[in-house]
Amino acid sequence: MTDKLSQEEINTLLYESGVGVLALTDGTEAYSIPESFGYDGEKVYFQFVYTANSKKMRFLETTETATLTVYDENPTRSVLVQGSIEPVPGEDETKAATAIAENASIPTLNVYTETTPDEFTMDYYRLEPTAISGRQFSAFTPTPDDR
């Protein structure tokens, strides 16, 4: 059984989570990746780290509507944020950096172990939500008739 989350509950999960799964597409294939993010109550911000041959960036170029899935297991609940992803304009980079600093879960895992820092790029992007939904899952308690 599921219940819709209120906007306040959705905002709380987005502020507290700081990491989710970002789904992109090239029109044929889907590509989902874990991503840290910051949320300012309106937009979702990412700081993408990538190399010249990044699959993430190739898919980003062809994705019209991306989906960020954020979830928690205690209680079991999830939020879907859908919308377009665009580079953050220079004048908004401080806003992006602040949102990321305040609530992103920054991984300590280096995914570019064979790459020197001058071989990758870091840029801010934002997901402009066109739809946000959330739900909470109630525990199923079997009755004697369910057994």
Results as ranks from 00 to 15, higher is better:
T51A: 13
S54G: 10
A97C: 01
T113A: 13
L60G: 03
I85T: 10
S133W: 09
G27L: 10
M122L: 11
P117S: 10
P34Q: 09
E114T: 12
F59W: 06
F59D: 05
L80T: 14
P87F: 08
I132R: 13
F137M: 07
S84E: 11
S36H: 04
N110S: 09
F59V: 05
F137G: 02
G83A: 11
T28I: 15
T115H: 12
D40P: 01
P117Q: 11
L80F: 14
E42W: 02
V81I: 15
T130Q: 15
T62H: 09
S133C: 09
N74H: 11
I132D: 09
S84C: 02
E73M: 02
M57D: 05
T63W: 04
N53Y: 13
V44N: 04
A99H: 11
I100K: 00
P89R: 01
T65S: 07
L24H: 14
E29I: 10
A97N: 03
P107I: 01
E35S: 15
I100N: 00
S54F: 08
A30K: 14
T98R: 00
I100D: 00
F137R: 05
V111G: 05
V44G: 02
L68S: 04
D72K: 09
A30F: 15
T130L: 12
K43Q: 13
S133H: 11
T115S: 10
S36R: 02
L60F: 03
A131Y: 07
N110M: 09
K55T: 09
M57T: 14
E91K: 05
Y45V: 02
F120H: 15
R135A: 07
V49S: 13
M57K: 09
D72W: 07
P129T: 09
N103C: 07
E61L: 08
T51I: 13
Y112L: 11
Y125C: 10
E64H: 06
K55P: 01
N74P: 01
D123S: 14
G38N: 10
G134C: 08
A23L: 11
T62Q: 13
G83W: 09
S105C: 04
L109C: 03
P75Q: 04
E114K: 13
Y71M: 12
T76N: 03
A66D: 08
K55R: 12
V44A: 05
S32R: 03
T76P: 03
R58E: 14
M122D: 04
D123R: 15
D118I: 11
R135N: 08
E35V: 15
Y125K: 09
T98H: 00
V81S: 12
T67N: 10
R77G: 06
T67Y: 03
I85N: 07
I85C: 06
S54P: 10
E93S: 04
V88G: 00
Y45D: 00
T98N: 00
G90F: 07
T69M: 14
V111A: 03
Y45G: 00
A30M: 15
G83N: 09
T108R: 03
D72L: 03
R77K: 14
I100P: 00
R135K: 15
D92P: 01
G38M: 05
D72N: 13
T51L: 07
I100H: 00
A97G: 07
P117K: 13
G134L: 04
I132A: 11
S84Q: 06
V88D: 00
M122E: 12
I33N: 11
A99I: 11
D118M: 06
D123Y: 07
T62I: 01
